[in-house]
Nucleic acid binder design. Structure first.
Length: 908
RNA sequence: GCGCGCUUAGCUCAGUGGAAGAGCACUUCCUUCACACGGAAGGGGCCGCAGGUUCAAGUCCUGCAGCGCGCACCA
């Protein structure tokens, strides 16, 4: 046994044990094991990312689940890895290269050279977040670490693409998609964030044309728009066919200002007569609804905004080359000059922003690949019927709502970094094989295609689709692609389906729902049994953590300052199920204080000397020992049921209460009565009780506080005599505590009456300490107490009272007659007096007793009102009635005693 | 517009029909031989508002308000 220093110093301890755990290969499970499997796949962080407090919360929870499962005797796989994060990573690398002046645009390098740079970047920065997770204590099986661009993983992604294509679920089509002009790629619907904005509704005047196509002097069609720059691409004005105001316009034409183009007025049901003017400008190439209308009315498409968000030549020479926002201003200015701007109204509307680039998304017509989701019914039913459980379960509704309104998923991205689409188009005969702009050599619309994991045997005659797949199209395979699918590996057989998934509700559609569908489609089984949704970490003002606000602390700094255990415990204690977490560094400080307290509680045990005691002698147990064991039993039961419902905060609260209040504040203090006494057998037995309880407590704490518990486990020699695999090598595999059980309680004579006795004694001590305070006895001054006991009281009890009341003596005297004015307090165990020779303050005692009497009177009144109600007495269950009657009797008795004490003080 | 949360002590939150709770913060006392990263004792709540059900409502029902978050092609 090594001596424990006075203050816990986490740094060296954490490094030492993490290395030891790796040496012992504690995190690497054996698929051949006969133990029941427990598995989690990590939500793969961005390979170039750094650890955030969100990761800390998420991964601490996973680690808690994994460590607890290990202690419960399960074969545990926590499978880690990272995600290639297509858009984000490509953007970061592109930006860096531009900053270094190496390129102006990625085209300057070309695809192959650019990708080489990205891989270089990945090799350099890709390991950072993994190293950070290790600092946190994450017990991942690093030998199975995966990356979504690993060759085997890529092959798996391509195979799924090919399969879904063969099933007819993947198709290519020309559609209006969400376009990110900054990243210059299509996005899925889920990657568009709708943001409410204060905009304007511009009312524009389009001159009406007469039969000879001449503008009428004073006849206009008024359209309202939030995006005036798109008017350059208008092809019609639409009205509702049933709108009586505009019947005369249908079939006529007006003049599109600035472009001087003749456009028709069409009738379409889509137009809401009640909104705006009831006339809608139709821009087929730049609005999804307008595109639909254009198809119905066979209108041409004029593209005036290019893929980079800059106006095209079709926008006219006044506007070509302008950014879309500049073009808006210019169009408005020009219309105003021409007197065609009727008015501008302030208008609140929703604008879609790219989740990645944070620029407004542009509806853009392009050729893309789409997926019609597979295994929808099985996936919906699994969650609805509870084969997959959500915690908290209210997310089930969100999930099923989305599943019932699925729209095809746009899976192609106009990027280089990612899984290239395994589709090749046959070049027209006689074309050269020189590289060039995309889609020049083969027309994908008409060319023969080759869709396969393997390229065509004669690659020179084919050209591969240049696009890559959405990153989520690889992530949705994570639970099984990481385990070696499509091979039937031992890992896959043992650990799929996984047990728990821990993630944020913000990716319920992106990831959770899609993983479920992929799981049913390819493994015929759910990918996980339960999903725990964490809250979002916010600062103490409720704002999201963000780099620009500078309110996002670096977890590694916190670990360096307070220790990983402190950070874990602090975060967990403030993270209620289903709600956001308001982070405050104070929580981490409290976590550190907690660790220090635990450290010192164990140090107290160590200072008592002696080696770990194996056997508790039931005959030598004090009431305090029994009380503590019963409290331990209760704590274990509470912790088990809290864990069963993933109520981690409740677990930490119970641990806190049991350890701090019950063990430290009461039990340790009472044990001093034994340790300061002269009964060696009893001392040894107390040590045995402490060792029993501490060894349970350390195990209960281990999932939350892996490092300090391991250090203390060995520091107190609890590993001695245990088999290697059962806690002898590491606390990680020590058996998870079970409730004590009836046999145990019978053997040790644990009875609730012991618990009640000690609780009553605690209450008595509380009364006594209160007297000290009320009469301004300094905490360090010893006084004498006298008790007029109601029953028997053991010498041990008296000694405990003496210590905890900081008394020089506690005298039992059934016939005690206190001097007038002696402060007193009532308790179940007897009346307590604090005689203060020469310091009696009759007035103070009278005031105190009067205050007490007032409190009792409130209680009497409250219960009396209920009992006086005939309906109450008649209808209430007997147990409740008895309870109330007892309350009244107790309160009256107390009132009598207080009154007697008050009378004894004499008149004021 | 539809849906889902939340509203209880100064703060963060428990409390799922029978006496308003915890942690932190606050006040006062204490360096007593585990711990001042500590101990002890206190103060502090029309449980968002209004109705209803019930012998009994923080708890169940109905409205309303405020805050937050999803979903939705009204330009």
């Amino acid at each position: 046994m090594i001596d424990l220093p006075k203050t816990y110093e986490p740094q060296a301890v954490e490094t030492k044990w993490y290395e030891r755990w790796l040496e012992l290969r504690c995190f690497t499970p054996d698929p051949a094991s006969r133990k029941p499997a427990y598995s989690i796949v990590i939500p793969p962080p961005n390979v170039t990312g750094v650890l955030t407090l969100g990761h800390v919360l998420n991964n601490t929870i996973q680690d808690i689940l994994a460590r607890k499962a290990r202690m419960e005797g399960r074969e545990v796989l926590w499978l880690p890895g990272t995600d290639h994060a297509g858009i984000a990573t490509q953007a970061v690398v592109e930006k860096t290269l531009k900053k270094q002046g190496l390129i102006r645009h990625r085209d300057d390098l070309g695809r192959e050279a650019f990708l080489a740079r990205v891989w270089e970047w990945k090799e350099k920065h890709g390991g950072i977040i993994i190293q950070q997770l290790k600092k946190l204590g994450a017990s991942c099986d690093w030998s199975r670490e995966r990356f979504t661009m690993d060759p085997a993983y890529s092959r798996c992604v391509q195979q799924v693409f090919v399969d879904l294509h063969r099933k007819g679920l993947i198709y290519r089509g020309r559609r209006m998609v969400n376009w990110d002009p900054a990243a210059r790629t299509a996005l899925s619907d889920e990657e568009v964030i709708m943001t409410e904005e204060q905009g304007s509704l511009w009312h524009l005047k389009y001159p009406l044309l007469d039969e000879r196509n001449q503008p009428l002097a004073d006849a206009f069609v008024i359209v309202a728009t939030t995006r005036p720059e798109t008017m350059l691409g208008d092809e019609a004005v639409a009205v509702n066919p049933a709108d009586p105001r505009y019947q005369h316009l249908i079939g006529r034409h007006c003049l599109l200002p600035l472009q001087n183009r003749r456009i028709p007025v069409v009738a379409d049901e889509l137009v809401d007569p009640k909104f705006g003017t009831g006339c809608v400008k139709v821009t087929p190439a730049h609005d999804p609804a307008d595109y639909e209308m254009a198809q119905r009315h066979r209108l041409p498409l004029t593209v005036v905004i290019g893929p980079d968000g800059v106006m095209t030549p079709a926008a006219g020479e006044d506007f070509v080359g302008l950014d879309r926002m500049e073009a808006r201003k210019a169009v408005i200015e020009e219309l105003e000059t021409q007197g065609l701007l009727l008015k501008v109204e302030p208008y609140t509307h929703n604008v879609g922003y790219s989740e990645r680039s944070h620029v407004p998304v542009e509806p853009y017509l392009s050729d893309q690949w789409f997926l019609r989701y597979p295994s929808i019914d099985a996936s919906t039913a699994a969650v609805e019927q509870g084969q997959i459980r959500f915690y908290p379960d209210r997310w089930v509704k969100t999930y099923t709502h989305w599943m019932r309104n699925l729209k095809d998923w746009c899976i192609s991205r106009q990027l280089w970094w990612g899984h290239r689409i395994p589709v090749w188009y046959r070049k027209p005969a006689g074309s050269s094989s020189e590289g060039g702009a995309r889609h020049v050599e083969a027309d994908p619309a008409t060319a023969a295609i080759h869709v396969d994991v393997e390229p065509p045997p004669d690659p020179e005659n084919w050209v591969q689709d240049p696009d890559v797949l959405d990153t989520w199209f690889s992530s949705w395979l994570w639970p099984f692609a990481t385990m070696g699918w499509p091979e039937s590996t031992p890992t896959l057989r043992k650990f799929y389906p996984t047990t728990d998934l821990v993630t944020g509700p913000d990716i319920i559609f992106f990831w959770v729902a899609r993983m479920i569908m992929a799981g049913y489609e390819y493994l015929g089984d759910k990918p996980f049994a339960a999903v725990y949704f964490t809250g979002i970490i916010r600062d103490k003002l409720g704002r999201k953590m963000s780099k620009s606000l500078g309110n996002s602390p670096d977890p590694l700094d916190l670990i360096a300052q307070y220790g990983a255990d402190a950070l874990r415990f602090g975060i967990m204690r403030s993270a209620p199920l289903g709600q956001d977490v308001l982070y405050d560094e104070l929580h981490v400080e409290l976590g550190r204080n907690f660790c220090n307290k635990l450290w010192n509680a164990c140090r107290f045990r160590q200072l008592q000397g002696g080696s770990p005691e194996a056997e508790i002698d039931p005959a030598l147990l004090t009431v305090d020992d029994k009380w503590l064991l019963l409290k331990l039993d209760r704590a274990i039961r509470e912790i088990s049921s809290a864990f069963a419902e993933y109520r981690f905060t409740e677990v930490t609260q119970t641990l806190h209460r049991f350890f701090w209040n019950e063990y430290c504040d009461w039990y340790i203090e009472t044990s001093k009565a034994v340790f300061q006494g002269d009964n060696p057998a009893r001392k040894a037995n107390t040590l045995a009780v402490i060792d029993f309880v501490l060894s349970h407590m350390l195990r209960l704490f281990h999932p939350f506080l892996p490092f300090i518990t391991e250090e203390l486990w060995h520091g107190l020699d609890y590993q001695l005599e245990l088999p290697d695999a059962q806690g002898g090598q590491t606390i990680m595999f020590a058996p998870w505590p079970k409730p004590l059980g009836d046999t145990f309680k019978l053997h040790y004579g644990l009875d609730e009456s012991d618990e009640r006795l000690v609780d009553a004694r605690c209450a008595l001590i509380g009364r006594g300490r209160n007297l000290r305070r009320e009469f301004n006895i300094p905490a360090n001054r010893k006084v004498t107490f006298v008790i007029r006991p109601t029953g028997g009281m053991s010498p041990h009890d008296v000694e405990v009272l003496r210590l905890l009341l900081n008394a020089d003596a506690v005298n039992l005297d059934p016939a005690y007659a206190p001097p007038q004015g002696t402060p007193s307090a009532l308790s179940e165990l007897g009346e307590l007096f604090m005689p203060l020779a020469g310091l009696l303050d009759v007035a103070a005692e009278r005031a105190r007793l009067t205050k007490e009497l007032a409190k009792v009177q409130i209680e009497i009144d409250r219960v009396q009102v209920k009992l006086d109600n005939p309906a109450f007495v008649q209808k209430v269950p007997p147990a409740v009635l008895e309870d109330h009657q007892k309350r009244l009797a107790d309160a009256r008795a107390k009132q009598g005693q207080l009154q007697a004490a008050l009378d004894a003080l004499g008149n004021p």
